[in-house]
Amino acid sequence: MIETFALLLLCQLAGEVLSHGFGLPMPGPVIGLLILFAGLVIAQNFGKASAVSINDTALGRATQGLLQHLSLLFVPAGVGVIDHLHLLQTYGPVLFLALFVSTALSLAVTALTFTAVKSWRSPRGVS
């Protein structure tokens, strides 16, 4: 299991190095996740991984263990919110409005894009 956590941390480290080294606008952990995904795809395509589910592997068991305790990772964020509660009281209504409007716009754009692609991909006269 330690090897699996080392693999996860190495992928994250590689992502951080690429993100900061090349000044990429994407966070290092996201790049690390893409590196891990690419490694899994390559391993599966070249026969290094068997046809068993990813959950049956050491990587699957380790990540399931992390996901079971994911709520602990939100504790520092919660403490930060409580620590800066005065800012939330000051800017809370504006933040709520911004979140509401951006969510509504995102949903609308997604629905319109889906509708446009669906009509573009389907033959004429078929809905």
Rank of each mutant, 00 (worst) to 15 (best):
8 L>H: 05
86 H>R: 07
103 T>F: 15
88 L>Y: 14
107 L>K: 03
82 I>T: 11
76 P>F: 14
92 G>W: 10
19 S>I: 02
1 M>S: 15
118 K>S: 11
92 G>E: 09
41 V>F: 07
34 L>I: 08
35 I>T: 06
80 G>I: 03
127 S>P: 00
39 G>I: 05
30 V>L: 10
84 H>V: 09
53 S>V: 03
27 P>A: 07
84 H>W: 05
117 V>K: 03
6 A>E: 15
61 R>S: 06
59 L>Y: 00
59 L>D: 00
49 A>V: 10
72 L>Q: 02
29 P>M: 04
3 E>W: 11
37 F>L: 13
36 L>H: 10
14 A>S: 08
39 G>T: 05
76 P>T: 12
108 A>G: 09
77 A>N: 02
47 G>M: 07
24 L>Q: 00
100 F>R: 09
106 S>G: 08
12 Q>N: 10
14 A>L: 10
103 T>P: 00
16 E>V: 13
76 P>Q: 11
1 M>W: 13
3 E>I: 09
31 I>Y: 01
46 F>P: 00
33 L>Y: 03
20 H>A: 15
35 I>H: 03
34 L>W: 03
46 F>I: 09
110 T>M: 11
42 I>D: 07
82 I>Y: 10
105 L>N: 05
8 L>M: 12
110 T>I: 10
13 L>A: 14
81 V>N: 00
116 A>H: 06
119 S>M: 12
75 V>M: 09
13 L>P: 01
69 H>C: 01
124 R>Y: 02
105 L>H: 03
27 P>F: 04
27 P>R: 08
54 I>T: 03
29 P>L: 04
80 G>Y: 01
88 L>W: 15
92 G>I: 07
40 L>H: 02
77 A>V: 13
116 A>L: 10
126 V>E: 04
71 S>N: 08
48 K>E: 05
117 V>A: 05
74 F>M: 12
75 V>G: 01
40 L>C: 10
114 F>V: 13
79 V>H: 00
3 E>T: 11
65 G>S: 13
118 K>W: 08
31 I>A: 01
123 P>A: 14
60 G>M: 02
102 S>T: 14
10 L>R: 10
6 A>K: 15
88 L>K: 04
37 F>P: 00
40 L>M: 12
116 A>D: 05
5 F>K: 06
50 S>D: 12
127 S>N: 05
18 L>F: 14
94 V>T: 15
19 S>K: 02
97 L>T: 15
98 A>M: 13
49 A>W: 05
15 G>Q: 01
48 K>H: 09
4 T>Q: 14
27 P>N: 04
87 L>F: 09
66 L>V: 15
63 T>M: 11
90 T>F: 13
6 A>H: 11
118 K>Y: 11
13 L>N: 02
11 C>M: 11
95 L>A: 15
5 F>T: 11
75 V>D: 00
67 L>E: 09
74 F>A: 14
125 G>R: 04
101 V>D: 06
25 P>H: 08
83 D>Y: 12
73 L>M: 13
113 T>E: 06
97 L>C: 12
83 D>E: 07
124 R>T: 08
48 K>C: 01
101 V>W: 07
17 V>P: 08
33 L>N: 02
34 L>T: 04
96 F>C: 11
58 A>D: 13
76 P>C: 12
54 I>D: 01
57 T>F: 04
120 W>G: 00
80 G>Q: 00
66 L>G: 11
3 E>C: 06
89 Q>D: 06
92 G>D: 08
54 I>Y: 06
62 A>T: 13
14 A>R: 01
115 T>E: 06
75 V>Q: 05
